[in-house]
């Protein structure tokens, strides 16, 4: 049985944002080290990321997502608004670090 590993994006010790320090190619065994920032979408949790995927798959139709999830239109609209706020905030924080 394969265990699905979840990419940790916040530090379990101080709750700060994590960076990628090492990347490895399984094909040629090459490794690269550095401090790579995670893409903005990787800062979302699994539930939020799933919502983004559904949103893209339904061509951004809130009506389609609401019927798929069984939620009302304003509930889905609120989920989207909260997500937009979170992404905007993350972008700001990442820019401020640069």
């Amino acid at each position: 049985m394969t265990v699905q590993k979840i990419l940790p994006v916040t530090c379990p010790s101080c709750a700060g944002r994590m960076k990628v320090q090492r990347l490895h190619c399984n094909n040629c065994d090459t490794s690269i080290e550095g401090a790579f920032e995670l893409p903005v979408l990787n800062h979302l949790n699994a539930e939020e990321l799933d919502f983004v995927l559904q949103f893209v798959k339904t061509s951004g139709s809130i009506k389609d997502i609401s019927s798929q999830l069984g939620f009302s239109y304003p509930t889905v609209r609120n989920m989207l608004d909260d997500l937009i706020k979170k992404i905007t905030q993350t972008e700001k924080e990442l820019k401020a670090k640069k």
Partner: peptide, 11 residues
């Protein structure tokens, strides 16, 4: 109930 019902259905 509004998590599931709003708009015309709720009306």
């Amino acid at each position: 109930p509004f998590i599931k019902y709003a708009g015309t259905k709720a009306l």
